Amino acid sequence: MDQTSPPNDTRPLAIEARGLVKNFDGTLAVDGVDILVPEGAIYGILGPNGAGKTTTLRMLLGIIDPDAGVRKIFGNDRPHEIAKLVGYLPEERGLYPAMKAIEAIAFMGALRGLPLDQGRARGLELLRKHDLDHAANKQIRQLSKGMAQTVQLLGTLVHHPKLVILDEPFSGLDAINQGKLERMIRELADDGTTVIFSTHVIHHAERLCEGVAIIAGGKVPYAGSVEAARDRIPAQVRLETRERDGKWREALPADTRREGDFFSFPLPDSGIEDLLRSLIEGNAGIQSLSIERAGLHDAFVHIAGEAAARAIEQDNANENSL
Rank of each mutant, 00 (worst) to 15 (best):
L239W: 03
R242W: 07
S270L: 15
E243T: 06
F262C: 09
I215G: 01
E259L: 13
L252P: 10
G211E: 02
P221F: 08
P221E: 10
A254N: 14
R207K: 14
V226R: 08
L275A: 06
F265G: 10
R257E: 15
L239D: 11
R232H: 11
E259N: 15
G224M: 06
V226P: 00
R257L: 15
K247E: 13
L267Q: 03
G224A: 06
L279K: 03
I272F: 15
I214L: 09
R277W: 14
V212G: 00
K219P: 00
S270M: 15
D274I: 07
S270W: 14
D255M: 10
P266N: 10
G218Q: 04
L239R: 05
A223F: 04
F265M: 10
A229R: 01
E210P: 02
S264Q: 13
F265K: 09
E206I: 13
R242G: 02
R258W: 12
I272G: 08
A254T: 15
E250L: 13
D261R: 12
R238A: 09
P234C: 02
A213F: 01
E210L: 01
L276R: 09
R232A: 05
P266F: 02
L275P: 08
P221N: 08
D269V: 09
G260E: 02
A235L: 08
R242L: 07
G271C: 12
I233H: 04
Q236E: 11
A229T: 04
S225Q: 04
R277D: 10
I272L: 15
P234L: 06
S264L: 12
S278E: 14
S270C: 14
R207V: 03
A213Q: 09
V226N: 00
T256W: 10
G224V: 05
F263I: 13
A254Y: 02
D231A: 15
R242N: 04
I214T: 06
V226G: 03
V226W: 01
D245S: 06
R257M: 15
A216W: 11
E250F: 06
R230V: 07
R249L: 10
P234G: 01
V226C: 05
E273R: 15
I233G: 00
I214G: 02
R230A: 06
E259C: 13
D255G: 00
K247L: 13
E273P: 07
